[in-house]
Amino acid sequence: MPNSSCPMLAVADLAKRYADVGRPLFSGIDFAVAAGEIVALVGESGIGKSTLLNCIAGLETADCGSVHIGPHALDMVRLDEAARAALRARNIGFVFQAFHVLPTLTVAQNIIVPLLLARVPSGEHATRTQALLERVGLAGFADRWPASLSGGELQRVAIARALVHRPALILADEPTGNLDPRTASDVLSLLLERVREQRAGALIVTHSQHVAQCCDRVLTLTANGLA
């Protein structure tokens, strides 16, 4: 369980330029996400929300600024690729619009993957997986193959996978974008509930007003920075 006394995400003076033209995509980004806090990131298409998310996750490198995740003093921006991967493995959970559940692994194996990457002792794998499957409403789905699941069920697997290693931060990119309104509402409730329960911080990129309204705070990314 993350330490609740320090922010789960602290972003300071983050900037990124377009690689081809050199024009700034965003700059001077400063914000923090506290433990148990869920923050929505909204903005026009193409404004750089996903790129900002990628920079925070260390999937793309920011030109300047710093990103600190959880209690760690490590700055994601200044780490090499292998160290960024290690930091992600232990401290970040991901939920994507396209679910991205590995089709060649069973539901349980998909959920165990972050535990393997975070080097959680193998004795805990089964209990944590089973507990989370029950919490996301997929008890009895452990040995099912992803191909046999619906979109809502796949996103529940993805949520379980994002939380199983008890990360400090959840990054979600349009987590309900591929779901019908009713399933989307169920999945969102589940995600928010579990994040709050684990006292993690969450940053959710969304175009949905409904999703944004359900979050504790809304950040809007504009051409002039965060508002």
Partner: peptide, 10 residues
């Protein structure tokens, strides 16, 4: 995806 989840480049 595995890389995003933390599988190192090596």
């Amino acid at each position: 995806l595995l890389g995003v989840l933390g599988l190192s480049p090596r």
